[in-house]
């Protein structure tokens, strides 16, 4: 078997809040991402999607389990070379990109910073041209090069963050709701761009989103997280055609469609059962797995 680009093994993470309160966010999530693969992560807010993204980026350390990028443990790189490799090859686009941009930097500096840190030569001649090139890719004029984050609208900041992540030539891109804040026409532009670059450059991507139509359009496989547990994972077409877990079924039934006649008749199902720490994995087809509770009959 070829080595996975990203391997997440039995990751547990509990948020410890003040007053001794602890909130479990991830309860034993395992997942592998192959090079060049786009895996969508869906689930309700608070289910642990963003926590997983942050754990993959090494921004928080799981209490149990292990996350490896290309065989390098993201929380314990062995040497400087491994550390650099993690720094440059993994990039993240945050849900609230405006907050992820350093207010002291110009847009040009923001986009080129990862390249400079990795001592990568710009592909477009100069760093300035490189930054202008990426701005144009995300639909922004070169006039923005000298702006600062506080002079950008939410959508513009989001696109600068996307430009920065892509300019770094990542091998793994973790995108946490990258397009939720953008207008419909821009969403299409960014998704086309992500898809094109992903094909050209072959990077792997974790795409976290609540827009199921976009997930369906972009991703090769989809992982469903419910109450901090992975409950189903399958190739995209198969998941949408034949969901097995009750939560997945409810989620897909709630997926809104831009069609008034269908929308006005649609009755979403709801699923509120708790998911235990036990359960048995069933295989529905070669790449389609779902978690059944103990005693629940796996058809």
């Amino acid at each position: 078997m070829s080595e996975a680009l990203l391997s997440i093994r039995d990751v547990h993470y509990t948020h410890r809040l003040s007053g001794g309160v602890s909130v479990p966010a991830l309860r034993g999530v395992s997942l592998e991402l192959q090079p060049g693969e786009i895996v969508g992560i869906v689930g309700e807010s608070g289910c642990g999607k963003s926590t997983l993204a942050r754990a993959v980026m090494g921004l928080l350390a799981p209490q149990k389990g292990e996350i490896c990028y290309n065989g390098i443990n993201v929380h314990h790189p062995q040497n400087m070379a491994e550390k650099r490799c993690l720094q440059q090859q993994r990039q993240m686009i945050f849900q609230n990109a405006a907050l992820s941009l350093d207010p002291h930097f110009s847009v040009e500096e923001i986009i080129c910073e990862p390249l400079r840190l990795a001592q990568l030569a710009p592909q477009q001649g100069s760093y300035r041209e490189e930054a202008a090139y990426w701005l144009q890719q995300v639909g922004l004029d070169a006039l923005f090069l000298s702006r600062r984050p506080q002079q950008l609208s939410g959508g513009q900041a989001q696109r600068v963050a996307i430009a920065r992540a892509l300019a770094a030539r990542p091998r793994l891109l973790v995108a946490d709701e990258p397009i939720a804040a953008l207008d419909v026409s821009l969403q299409a532009q960014i998704v086309n761009l992500l898809r094109r670059l992903q094909r050209e450059q072959g990077f792997g991507m974790l795409f976290i989103a609540h827009d199921l139509a976009m997930v369906r359009h972009l991703c090769h496989r989809v992982a469903v997280i419910y109450q901090g547990r992975l409950v189903e994972i399958a190739p995209t077409a198969e998941l949408f055609r034949a969901p097995r877990h009750g939560y997945t079924k409810a989620l897909l039934s709630a997926m809104p469609l831009p069609d008034p006649r269908q929308e006005k008749q649609r009755q979403p199902q709801y699923y509120e059962q708790p998911v235990s720490d036990g359960g048995v994995w069933h295989q529905a087809s070669p790449q389609h797995y779902w978690l059944a509770e103990d005693g629940e009959v796996g058809e």
């Binding site: 299409a188 898809r195 139509a213 976009m214 359009h217």
Partner: peptide, 18 residues
């Protein structure tokens, strides 16, 4: 606006971007 949605695009590969 409608064409840029995944469910409407004539092309399965590429979404329409205005």
């Amino acid at each position: 606006l409608l064409r840029s949605l995944p469910g409407f695009s004539a092309d399965e590969e590429e979404l329409y971007a205005l």
